[in-house]
Simulated assay, not measured.
Amino acid sequence: MNESFGVFQIFVPIVACGIVAICCASFCKIFHRARKERLQRQAAENRVRDVSASVYVIPISVSDDDLSRPPRYSTAQFYDPPPAYNQVKLEAYPLEPPPPYTEAPHS
């Protein structure tokens, strides 16, 4: 009886640790796979969002001379600074909603 009790004292903790290690490894794999799938879904959503959001570039004509010379600061317009916050008068917020959008007829 003493020998079987010694065998149980040695092998039961080893088997229990093995079962716990297998469970931890499987949980880690499950969570890693779920995180990987979530990141792939987010990347796919970002690619779709990037494709659908286009940028409109306003074409301007610039000569080669304008590209090579420094900017002309003498032609810049100067504006007065804005008034201080304590000098700005608050306007009343309109209580009625804005008019509904209507398509203008094309001429």
Rank of each mutant, 00 (worst) to 15 (best):
A34Q: 13
A104E: 14
I10K: 06
R38Q: 11
A76L: 15
R72T: 05
H106T: 10
I58M: 11
L95Q: 13
R35W: 10
Y79D: 10
F27S: 05
A84K: 08
I19E: 01
I14H: 01
G6L: 13
E45R: 05
I22R: 07
P82M: 15
S107T: 15
C17F: 12
V48I: 04
Y73E: 05
I14P: 01
H32T: 09
Y73P: 01
E3H: 15
V20M: 08
F8V: 10
D80A: 07
V51T: 07
F31A: 11
A21K: 01
V15K: 01
A53H: 11
V57R: 03
E45D: 15
E91Q: 07
L39N: 05
Y79V: 12
T75N: 06
A84S: 07
I22E: 06
C28N: 14
D80W: 07
P83A: 01
E96R: 09
R33C: 14
F5R: 08
R35F: 03
A76Y: 15
I22T: 11
A92C: 00
P105A: 06
V51Q: 15
F31W: 11
I60S: 04
S63I: 01
H106Q: 08
V88R: 05
F78Q: 13
I60Y: 02
F11A: 13
P105N: 06
F27A: 11
R69T: 05
Y93V: 13
F31H: 03
I14N: 00
L39I: 12
V20L: 15
Y79S: 12
C24T: 09
T102H: 12
Q9E: 08
R33H: 10
F11C: 08
Q40A: 12
M1C: 04
A16N: 02
V48C: 05
F78Y: 08
M1Y: 12
I10Y: 06
P81K: 14
E91R: 15
E91M: 11
V88S: 01
P94S: 01
C23H: 03
L95F: 01
Q40T: 04
P98Q: 04
I60H: 06
L90A: 15
E45A: 10
K89M: 11
G6D: 04
V55I: 13
H106I: 12
D80T: 08
N86H: 14
Y85F: 08
S54L: 11
Y85N: 06
I19T: 04
R47I: 10
F11Q: 12
V57H: 09
P70G: 13
P83M: 05
R38M: 02
P94C: 00
N2M: 07
R38F: 03
F5Y: 13
S107I: 12
I58L: 09
L95W: 02
S74D: 14
P94F: 00
A16S: 10
V48K: 13
